[in-house]
């Protein structure tokens, strides 16, 4: 059994293997994972909107011991990740990190948000440092404005 704690390291190896077949294969795989998450959280986000996103990531923050700040406004939910446990584990590993490791988050969250009618903006500060910022908007226009900043 690959322990849950090591899953992200296996994930990192799968990304390398699938990407070796072509980038489109990798994107298709991430989308498929997003579809598998729809069953669990897509409906919750669709019904509960930004508050449901906030509640979901509040639990994730505790369960996965994330150093992150969560904010909820009338317009958006924001996850400001100061130290991502997932990339940290991949970096703390005998195997090398996949260069686009961070992009998998956007890859699986986007289909979930599309299902929920919400709009995701992902700001990857650095792909080699475990920090990033995710904002989820109710309004597509406001999301696009933030994306353009």
């Amino acid at each position: 059994m690959i322990p849950s704690d090591h899953f992200v390291r296996y994930y990192n190896e799968v990304f390398k293997a699938v990407d070796s077949l072509g980038r489109d294969h990798l994107y298709a795989y991430w989308r498929k994972l997003g579809e598998s998450q729809i069953q669990k959280i897509g409906e919750k986000f669709r019904k509960g909107g930004l508050e449901a996103c906030y509640e979901y990531w509040k639990v994730i923050k505790e369960e996965e011991n994330c150093d992150a700040q969560l904010s909820l406004t009338d317009d958006y939910f924001e996850l400001d990740m100061k130290r991502c446990p997932s990339l940290s584990k991949v970096l703390d590993n005998d195997a090398s990190p996949f260069p686009l490791y961070c992009d998998h988050c956007m890859g699986w969250i986007r289909p979930v948000m599309e299902y929920a009618g919400l709009h995701l903006v992902f700001d990857i500060n650095s792909r080699i440092e475990p920090r990033c910022r995710i904002r989820i908007y109710k309004d597509r226009f406001k999301a696009e404005l933030f994306q353009a900043e």
Partner: peptide, 25 residues
């Protein structure tokens, strides 16, 4: 959800690319 995602990954890789590719990972 790690085990859910692991299961989905194994299922996807085996169906789309075959058992040998899964073994490679």
């Amino acid at each position: 959800d790690f085990y859910r995602t692991l299961n989905a990954t194994i299922s996807y890789i085996a169906e789309r690319y075959g058992e040998d590719f899964l073994k490679k990972t």
